[in-house]
Computed example of a mutant assay.
Amino acid sequence: MTSSAPAADPTTRVRLRPRYEGSNICTWIGFKHVNYLVEEAVYDHARQHGFPPGELFERYGLGVDLTDLDTKILTALHIDDVVTATVRRLPAQDGGGLRLGVELTVERSGETVKAVAAKATVHLRSDPRGHAVAEPPAELVGLTVDRLGAGAATVPLEPGTDPLEQLTAGRNAFGWAWRMPYFYCHFTERVQMSGYLRQMEEVVDLFLADRGVSIKTLLDEQDWIPVVPHSRITLLDEALMEETLYTVYTVESVFKRLTYTARMDAYVLRDGVLVPTATGRITHGWAVIENRRDWSLVDFDDRLTDALTGKAGKALGRGRA
Rank of each mutant, 00 (worst) to 15 (best):
S23K: 02
R232P: 03
F51H: 12
R320A: 15
L308R: 10
P128I: 09
M264V: 15
D162W: 04
V113M: 08
C185Q: 11
D65H: 14
L218G: 03
R293T: 14
L157I: 09
G212M: 00
T217Q: 13
L37D: 05
E158I: 12
R15Q: 06
L208E: 10
V227G: 03
R19N: 00
R211T: 11
N172R: 03
G195D: 08
R15K: 07
S231W: 03
T71E: 01
Y196H: 08
I73M: 14
C26P: 02
D302L: 05
E243S: 12
L77H: 05
T105I: 01
Q192W: 14
I233Y: 03
A76G: 06
Q93I: 13
G272C: 04
E107G: 09
M264H: 04
S253W: 00
I79H: 04
T12R: 01
S194Y: 08
R281F: 11
G151R: 11
Y43Q: 14
G63E: 00
E243G: 09
M264A: 07
G61N: 09
D265P: 08
F183A: 08
L308P: 12
D65S: 13
L77N: 04
T154A: 15
T247R: 08
L240Q: 12
L74V: 10
A262N: 06
A266N: 14
S231A: 14
T168W: 01
L164G: 10
V213E: 10
A177S: 11
A153C: 00
G317I: 06
K216N: 05
K72H: 15
L77Q: 04
K32L: 00
R190M: 15
Q222M: 08
H123Y: 06
K119A: 11
